[in-house]
Design a protein around this nucleic acid. Sequence first.
DNA 1: TAGGCCATCTGGTCCT
DNA 2: AGGACCAGATGGCCTA
Length: 269
Amino acid sequence: MEEGDLEPYVRRRRSSNEKAKNRLMKMDPVEQDRLRQCINSRERKRMHNLNSALDQLRNSLPNSKNPATKKLSKINTIVTASEWIVRLMQENDMLRKKLSDLGTSIPPLQFSISTMSHQNHHLQHPSPPFISSSPKGNREEIKQPKKKVATPKATAAVAAPPPPPPPPLDPAPQINAAAFFSNFLPNLPPNFFPNFLHHQAAAAVAAAAVSTGTTFLPQRLGNGGGGQSPLTLSMPTSQIPEFCFKDCGNNGGVCLCVKCLLSNKNTVS
DNA sequence: TAGGCCATCTGGTCCT
DNA sequence: AGGACCAGATGGCCTA
């Protein structure tokens, strides 16, 4: 495309909108530029609001406060949050069932756009940097999707079947810490466990429990065969670190993270 | 250096 | 008419 093909304001026009085009072409270049900057500014604010909401969502996810974890990308934030919500709903259902079995009942939670909008009041009335200059106020709020003319892409989206309901949550088996270690590291030296900081061992077991779909049951480790005092696992699963222990320097160069354990990358010397 | 991620600009379309 | 929303294009930054 040559430089002459570009109009001062109306660029890359793909279809003709004669009214708008005529109106814009009546403007002088300075006025067109001012309008363009105004539109760009609004779009930036809109995207900043979107990112702000995305940051909130990211910070609501488990492990988000862990400085060792890398910041989730936008798409991963959405996907992870979606999966996390499903997980919470499953756990919620399970707990309700347990309550029901105990003869107690509580009313189901009710979610609605209106209550969520109330809780996200700050999105409709953002803090000063993102306050809309629009005389109509900020329209960036949670609301029902607007009706659009069916385009091929939109039609495909509507025609797509809804995702299958999540499978029922099976009662998770509980993992025994000592059994886990004896299964995956059968040739442990007699004094193996005492060589590890117990919170690392606890974290590794807990991480294994999560990755294998089992429930981490805090309990006492065995004595490791060396006549040492038993170790108490006390780390809640919410604090499971995601980083590899190889770098910690406290375990003799042996990594206890699940990934390394399962891939046999670690060696016990 | 390729690929992922992101911010920004931009034009088209819809909504109020 | 003006603003919101959307998606394509583009270039910068970072990392494996």
